[in-house]
Simulated scan of single mutants.
Amino acid sequence: MMKAAYTALFLIGTTALWSCGHAQREVAIPVEDTIPVTLLSLRQLDADEIIEATGVFTTDDETVLGFKNGGVIQQIYVKEGDPVRKGQRLASVQATEIDTRAGQVNVGLEKAERDYQRAQKLYRDSVATLEQLQNARSAWELAKRDVDAVQYNQQQLHIISPVSGFVLARLANQGQVVGPGTPVLQVNGAGMHSWMLKVGVSDSQWAKIQKGDAAEIETDALPGQKLQAIVSKKLEAMDPQSGTFTIYLDLKTPPSGKLATGVFGKSRISVGKAANNTSPQASWELPYEALVDADGNQAYVFVTRDGKRATKQAVKLGSIGQQSVMVLSGLENIDGVIVAGSPYLTEGSLIRVKP
C-alpha cells in the first residue's frame, strides 16, 4: 500500500517537472527581430522625355596621323581641305638619322657574317668549340634583326593616307621637330563612311540616355530635312575642355545632300524610346546601395509590398553612372525599394521602415 502511494507521488512529481520545463522552453523561443530599413520611393523616369543637345558632324573614320619615330618634317604635301586618296603620301620626315643608322647596322651585319663563317671553319678543324660557333651564329642572327628593324623604320618616314577623303586639319609645318606620334594631319573619309553627330550633355542627361535611343537631327546645311539617328556610343568620362559628357548619334540613313566635318547640328533625343520601337521603355534610377547579387546586367533588390516584410526582386540593369544605375525592368507596380539595411535581409525578413 505504501509502495503504491510512493509510486503515485513519483509520477505526479515527474509530470509536474516535465510540464514546468516544457513551459519554460516554450517561453524561451526567440521572436524574430524586425530590421530597420530605409525605403526609396520609386518614380519612373519620363519615357516620353526629350533631351535637346547640339554638336558637330563627324565620321566614324576620322583619324589623326603622325610619324612613328619623329624627327624634322621635310615636306607636307597637302593643305587643309585637300582631297586625298587611300595610300597617298601626305608628309615626310628627314631621313638623315635613319639612313646613318641603316649604314651602321649593315656594317655590323657584314662583320657578324664574317665571324660566323670563320667560326664554322675553325669548328670543322676542331679549333673552335661548339659554344663559340653557337655564339657567332647568335650574333649574326641579331645583326639581321637589327637590319630588319631599321628597314621597317625607313618605311615609316612618310605619312600615308589610310582612307580616301579630305584633310580636316594641318597640325604641323615644314621644318618643325616632332616626336613619335605627334599629330601632324587630321583626315577623314567624308562621304565614304557613316556620318554621326557628336553632342555634349550634362551628367544627369547622360544617366538617362541609353544606347539605342532614337534621335532626330536638324542642320542648316540640309534645310528642311529631319535626319533619323540612334544613340550609338556614350563616353564614360567627362570632356575636360567642355565639362560635358559626349554622346554619339549615328545617322540611320545617308543624308540627301552633302555634309562636312564640323557642320553644326541640333538633336532631339527620345529618352527610353528605342530606334526600332515606337513604344517607349520604362526605366528607373537607383543608387548602388540598393543592389544585391549583381551579375552583368542582372541584379536583385529588396522591395516591400506591405511595409512589413522584405521581398527579393530580380531586375534588369541598363547604363551605369558614377553614383547610380538605370533599371530597365523588374520594378513595375512597385512603389519603393529598400536602400539601407538590405545587406541584413533575406526573403521574407520582418522590417521596420524608418521615416
Rank of each mutant, 00 (worst) to 15 (best):
A5N: 00
T15K: 00
Q24P: 00
P30E: 11
P30L: 08
P30H: 05
T34H: 07
T34A: 14
P36R: 05
V37Q: 08
T38K: 15
L39E: 13
Q44A: 12
A47W: 01
D48M: 11
E49F: 07
F57H: 02
L65W: 09
F67I: 05
N69V: 03
G70R: 02
Q75G: 00
Q75S: 06
V78Q: 01
K79L: 03
D82M: 04
R89S: 08
S92D: 13
A95Y: 01
D99T: 06
T100L: 08
G103S: 11
D115M: 09
A119T: 11
A119L: 07
K121P: 00
V127H: 09
V127W: 08
A128E: 07
E131L: 12
Q132V: 10
Q134V: 05
N135K: 13
A136Y: 11
A139C: 03
E141R: 12
A143G: 09
A143E: 11
K144H: 08
Q151K: 13
N153Y: 11
Q156S: 13
I159Y: 10
I159V: 05
I160M: 12
S164Q: 14
V167F: 06
N173Q: 14
Q174Y: 03
G175A: 12
G175M: 09
L185P: 12
L185K: 09
Q186S: 13
G191Y: 02
G191K: 03
S194V: 06
K198P: 00
V199Q: 08
D203N: 12
G212L: 02
G212V: 04
D213E: 03
E218W: 04
A221G: 02
A221E: 14
G224Y: 09
Q225D: 02
K226N: 05
Q228E: 13
I230D: 07
S232L: 09
K233N: 15
K234H: 09
L235Q: 14
D239V: 06
P240Q: 10
Q241Y: 08
G243A: 02
T244D: 05
F245I: 06
I247E: 14
Y248F: 15
Y248D: 15
L249G: 07
P254G: 07
G257K: 10
K258T: 11
K258Q: 10
L259R: 07
A260Y: 06
A260I: 01
G262V: 02
F264D: 11
G265D: 09
R268C: 07
S270W: 04
V271L: 14
G272Y: 09
P280K: 01
Q281D: 10
S283R: 10
L286M: 12
P287I: 11
Y288N: 13
E289G: 08
L291I: 09
D295I: 02
G296T: 01
Y300D: 08
R309Y: 01
Q313V: 03
V315Q: 06
K316C: 02
L317A: 12
S319N: 15
Q322D: 11
S329I: 04
G330F: 00
N333H: 04
G336L: 08
G336D: 02
G341K: 03
G341N: 06
P343F: 01
L350E: 03
K354G: 02
